[in-house]
């Protein structure tokens, strides 16, 4: 159903290896958050490398395509990459090397590597633990985790209509293309894309009016019933205990290495 979010390769139920897919969705979300908080509080580079490796172990368990997942982990906004490249030059400290008269410091380089490792470890765990689930399951799990009901419903609607509107946009763009539209850096392009977005919004609102009418027609009373009731099983407790001990070990190793670098 949700092509845009999950990618074409992961058809629902296409692969059924024993792994993360058997785990309680609520647990997967909680662990992703806990892992992110853990890696953000780590500072020793060696521990961070281990943390990244731990997140890497989740990739084969998640059933996600390995190449695509790693590419998504590495993809960052251009300005974050620029920021990491600038850091060695903007942090004062032991000179390491110099480019065009600018001196890079060891401390700055360490800081940049630290951010890079942290960001990638947190995102990889998130992609595998949460991104490997069906988007609808994520919505149900968030509801079970007591996230405000209206926020969950908003999310479910977004998940449901992302693909529909993506197709709508593609149709509009094909229509533009057959009329000879070629994007460039000019007013005509920006105006045409503006109209495209305007059209998308107008159609979205009109679609939502039809949706609401259809829902009311079927007795919508302002509440959506979420049927899925996740349950913690023995395997979930084992996985939770394992993950918790890994995170505690990472934190302990970090404290130990920072205070006693020898």
């Amino acid at each position: 159903m949700t092509h845009v979010l999950t990618g074409a390769e992961t058809e629902a139920g296409a692969r059924h290896l024993p792994g993360l897919s058997d785990r309680d969705p609520r647990l997967r979300i909680v662990l992703a958050v806990a892992f992110a908080i853990t890696v953000v509080s780590l500072s020793d580079l060696r521990v961070l490398v281990v943390a990244l490796a731990c997140a890497g172990c989740l990739v084969p368990l998640s059933g996600l395509p390995v190449g695509l997942t790693l590419r998504r982990m590495l993809a960052m906004d251009g300005f974050v990459i620029a920021m990491l490249l600038l850091l060695p030059f903007s942090v004062p400290g032991t000179p390491l090397f110099s480019v065009w008269g600018l001196t890079a410091s060891r401390e700055g380089l360490v800081h940049a590597v630290e951010i890079g490792l942290t960001a990638n470890a947190a995102v990889l765990a998130l992609l595998t633990l949460v991104g490997g689930m069906e988007p609808v399951t994520v919505g149900h799990a968030l509801h079970a985790l007591k996230v405000p009901e209206r926020l969950v419903h908003l999310m479910m609607f977004t998940i449901r209509y992302v693909d529909v509107l993506r197709d709508e946009t593609q149709r509009l763009r094909v229509a533009m293309k057959v009329r000879g539209f070629r994007p460039g850096t000019n007013w005509h392009t920006y105006r045409s894309y503006g109209y495209l977005v305007g059209m998308l919004l107008v159609r979205s609102v009109e679609r939502s009016e039809r949706i609401l009418a259809a829902m009311k027609c079927r007795g919508f009373s302002g509440r959506l019933v979420l049927l899925e009731q996740p349950r913690m099983r023995a395997g979930d407790w084992v996985f939770a205990a394992l993950a918790a001990s890994v995170m505690l070990a990472l934190l302990a190793a970090n404290v130990w290495l920072v205070h006693d670098p020898a």
Partner: peptide
């Protein structure tokens, strides 16, 4: 909620459009 959800999806999709500059 339906209107906001569909619009949220619309802005998500619009964010996937790349504009030449």
């Amino acid at each position: 909620i339906p209107a906001a959800g569909v619009l949220s999806a619309a802005f998500f999709v619009a964010g996937l459009i790349h504009v030449p500059i």
